[in-house]
Simulated assay, not measured.
Amino acid sequence: MKAFTQFEGTTIPLMNDNIDTDQILPKNYLKRVEKTGFGEFLFDDWRYLAKRKPNPEFILNFPQYKEASILITGDNFGSGSSREHAAWALLDYGFSVVIAGSFGDIFYMNATKNGLLPIVLPLSVRQQLAALSPDTAIYVDLPLQQVIIDGEIYPFEIDPAWKHKLVNGLDEIGITLQEADKISAYEQTIPDYRLPM
């Protein structure tokens, strides 16, 4: 997993509350086995009309937001089922940060273990972010736990264990590989029970 320390990007507001994982990525796209290629199906039911014609009224289809990499949204984002695919779709589309009022617990875990930073900020700050022009960049500093907008600093909380993993780019495999020497040493102590030829 790529380390996440500082990030600068533009925002896109989708201020609905209770956006669940089936709205983020509908269940009919869960058959893929790789983590990539889900971005084109992100918010699929809202993003497309019949025959996959782009919905001109859905904000992800607005040309001025095509480069947005920080999603600003409502409360209880990512509620619903435990599908990890929702985090994969957001990342594959190009989002690196989601700023919400709260998150579904399982989505929050899935996001952090895949390198997508979920940030909780109060409604007043999210409304300020939602009102930014599409070309205005904001700065996120994970080590300092700050979102910075035009010199204004907004602190956020994150569990120290998740912060450590994100800052150091450690997923489960990376954490296991930190113990590679101990694992190898242990494997040398395992008796060979194969029958002699």
Rank of each mutant, 00 (worst) to 15 (best):
N168Y: 05
A68F: 00
K113N: 14
A137P: 12
L166P: 04
D135T: 15
L14C: 04
I173G: 07
F156P: 03
E172P: 02
L14D: 03
D22V: 02
I158W: 06
M197W: 12
L49Y: 12
S102I: 00
I106Y: 07
I173N: 10
N55F: 08
F62R: 10
P196W: 04
G115Q: 06
A180T: 12
M15Q: 04
D92P: 04
Y108M: 12
S102D: 00
S133T: 15
H164E: 14
D22I: 03
I106M: 09
F58L: 06
R52H: 13
A180E: 14
I149Y: 13
T21A: 05
H85S: 06
D22M: 03
S133A: 14
K66W: 10
F4R: 05
K182N: 09
D45R: 15
H164I: 07
K165Q: 12
A50P: 00
L25C: 02
E40C: 12
E152Q: 15
F7W: 15
L60P: 07
A137V: 14
N61K: 05
H85V: 01
W88M: 08
R194E: 13
Q145H: 13
L14A: 04
T21K: 03
Y186C: 05
I148H: 01
A87R: 00
D105M: 08
H85F: 03
V120M: 08
S82Y: 05
E157I: 11
L144M: 15
P26H: 01
G174R: 09
E84I: 05
D20I: 06
R47F: 07
V125W: 03
K31H: 13
Q188E: 15
A111G: 10
K27S: 12
P54G: 09
P143K: 06
S184Q: 15
F58V: 05
E152G: 09
Q146D: 09
P118G: 08
L142R: 04
G39C: 05
A100S: 07
Q127V: 05
I153K: 14
T21E: 03
A161C: 12
E40Q: 15
L132T: 03
G94E: 07
F58P: 02
I106A: 08
L71K: 04
V97P: 01
F103W: 08
P155S: 14
G80K: 03
F107S: 06
D135G: 11
Y48N: 07
S79V: 12
Y186L: 12
N55V: 07
N55Q: 08
I12L: 13
A131C: 07
I175W: 02
F43S: 04
P134H: 10
N28T: 13
L166F: 09
V167A: 02
G94Q: 06
G151F: 05
P155D: 13
L49I: 10
I72K: 00
L30R: 05
R52Q: 14
Q128D: 09
Y139K: 14
L195N: 11
K27L: 03
V140G: 09
I59C: 08
F95R: 01
L42K: 01
L166K: 06
T136C: 12
D181L: 11
L123W: 09
S69E: 10
F95G: 01
S79W: 02
V98M: 07
A50C: 01
F95K: 01
G37M: 01
